[in-house]
Design a protein around this nucleic acid. Structure first.
Lengths: 108, 108
DNA sequence: TCCTGTGCTACATTTATCGTAGCAATACGC
DNA sequence: GCGTATTGCTACGATAAATGTAGCACAGGA
């Protein structure tokens, strides 16, 4: 699994262009990535609470996504335990808020 | 591979809640989905041009994503050939535009 | 007719994710 | 101390999804 340290560019899958938007789209395009950010939007959650919020997704992927999101600087592990958004992550989450309104109108 | 007709709700993976935002986050959280929307943001592209734009992603997934995005009503296949965004898809894409600015500031 | 480009598919290989179980560490109350 | 509960996190076999390469049928254009 991808878990190498965030030393370098890390050639995020399918985006060797170096354009940051591609790296971001790729990171957010992995399973549960968007969902994790969404579930943390209001308050920090423990790893198990987050798992519950994410329909009991397997801890393997959740842990992988959390590591990636932490390396990206969007999520952090509070010293008292529990995952929360960093200021940057909160900012990113704000970017996604209009999606909520859109989804409500969409209603497949 | 997921390819069933859009007959029913289709229980989008990991979102049995019925909340549309979950379905949307799930759909957009599949590989190349966000990227496809992004690459189509300006002009329609043929399937092969889209493939080139997406770093030569395998046509199997691209075709799968395109089918899903079409069923969702975000993408359509123009009668002259070439994939383009529907008005709804364009609207969704607008929602993601702030992401571009964010990514530029992010620059991992 | 041949050539080119379109959307799209087959299929074997590789990779990601799932599901279940369990670990070490850190607390609690007794 | 002892048990018990919770934390973050990992192992590992089974399953689902993505990759890479090749190629199909169809529709023009020369």
């Amino acid at each position: 699994m991808a878990k190498q340290a965030g030393t370098a560019t890390r050639s995020v899958r399918g985006s060797r262009s170096g354009r940051p938007i591609m790296a971001l789209l790729d990171l957010l395009g992995r399973r549960w990535a968007l969902r994790i950010l969404w579930e943390l939007r209001e308050e920090p959650l423990t790893s198990r609470a987050l798992r519950s919020a994410c329909d009991e997704a397997s801890p393997t992927v959740l842990q992988a996504r959390l590591t990636e999101l932490r390396e990206a600087g969007f999520v952090e592990l509070g010293d008292g335990g529990g995952y929360g958004l960093t200021p940057l992550g909160r900012e990113l989450c704000e970017t996604f808020m209009p999606l909520h309104r859109f989804a409500e109108r969409w209603r497949r």
